[in-house]
């Protein structure tokens, strides 16, 4: 890649390929129309309420507790998914076993099942009288109506993000590098740690980020299994609904703004890390 040859003063680096104007234009137009303008309405609405009021609603004790629950459980679920999603992707890519293709299709189920249905099904499983709950309860393990229940729901919601991010990279990972490592005397575990993990780290990070981001905002499935106790299992999206119930649109948008900025920053940082690592690897 010798791009330095023609570093013109142009905004983008020149390319022989056509279609930048068209595709970039379509992208920007659609993005603006569907995402940016509608989201701007949230900011503008919340800006209308004045700073002190914004802080009073967006950073009240109750809201802070809800952010902690939302971001905490989403991070926990993201971590669970990073580990188990990697495991699932690894098994699906590397090993052969009967029924693999059907199981591969199953991984996408959480995208398809309405979130409310997922929530009801999970609650039916983990409630003290549920299929699993009745065995967990005597062990002192409470899942439904505790933060653990929220994590369970978010693991369900976020799993495909991790598996589907890691899978293609794992499949594309050249076997020659591993072979080289093995010939140099590395054990399998060493190869995994030193060769495979660095190669899939960006994809794993993306998967984690998407699962996390999706978990922070999730409402439909969580509401059934959370128990919704203020300060303990009350999630931030529920507070938005609470504000709407009071016909306080501005308050609702204040909480939405805080959540959205936080998610946006987290996603941006992760995408920047990725771009940087790609540049380093590609250089």
């Amino acid at each position: 890649m010798s791009r330095t040859l023609s570093r013109a003063k142009s905004w983008r680096q020149p390319s022989v390929l056509p279609g930048f104007g068209l595709t970039f234009g379509v992208t920007l137009a659609w993005l603006t129309l569907i995402v940016l303008v509608p989201l701007a309405s949230i900011f503008i609405r919340s800006a209308g309420m004045g700073w002190s009021e914004f802080v009073a609603v967006g950073f009240s004790d109750r809201a802070l507790a809800a952010y902690r629950v939302s971001f905490g459980t989403a991070a926990a679920a993201g971590l669970v998914n990073a580990v188990s999603g990697l495991l699932v992707a690894w098994v699906l890519v590397r090993y052969a076993f009967p029924g693999k293709r059907v199981i591969s299709a199953l991984v996408d189920l959480p995208f398809a099942l309405p979130t409310a249905v997922a929530g009801i099904a999970l609650t039916a499983l983990y409630a003290p009288t549920g299929w699993l709950g009745q065995f967990l309860e005597p062990l002192g393990l409470k899942v439904a109506f505790t933060p653990v229940g929220i994590v369970v729901a978010l693991v369900f919601i976020g799993l495909p993000f991790v598996v589907r991010s890691v899978e293609p990279v794992l499949a594309d990972l050249g076997r020659d590098v591993e072979e080289a490592a093995a010939t140099l005397g590395a054990t399998r575990l060493q190869t995994f740690r030193r060769v495979i993990v660095p190669a899939i780290a960006p994809a794993l990070l993306t998967g984690f980020a998407l699962a996390f981001a999706r978990g922070v905002g999730e409402y439909g499935s969580v509401i059934f299994i959370a128990g919704n106790m203020p300060g303990k299992t009350e999630i931030a999206p529920l507070l938005i609904v609470t504000q709407l119930e009071q016909y306080a649109y501005a308050g609702a948008t204040a909480i939405a703004t805080v959540m959205m900025l936080a998610s946006f920053l987290i996603l941006l940082v992760i995408n920047l890390i990725q771009a940087a690592s790609r540049r380093r690897m590609g250089a």
């Binding site: 993005l31 995402v35 922070v216 999206p237 996603l267």
Partner: peptide, 27 residues
């Protein structure tokens, strides 16, 4: 297919709807 500044920002903006709570996306 092209190199231009702000690409990470653009990708993040495309990701954004994943992170917006469904409650808000209706609102």
């Amino acid at each position: 297919k092209f190199h231009f500044p702000g690409k990470s920002l653009l990708i993040t903006l495309i990701d954004l709807p994943f992170s917006v709570s469904p409650v808000v996306s209706g609102l």
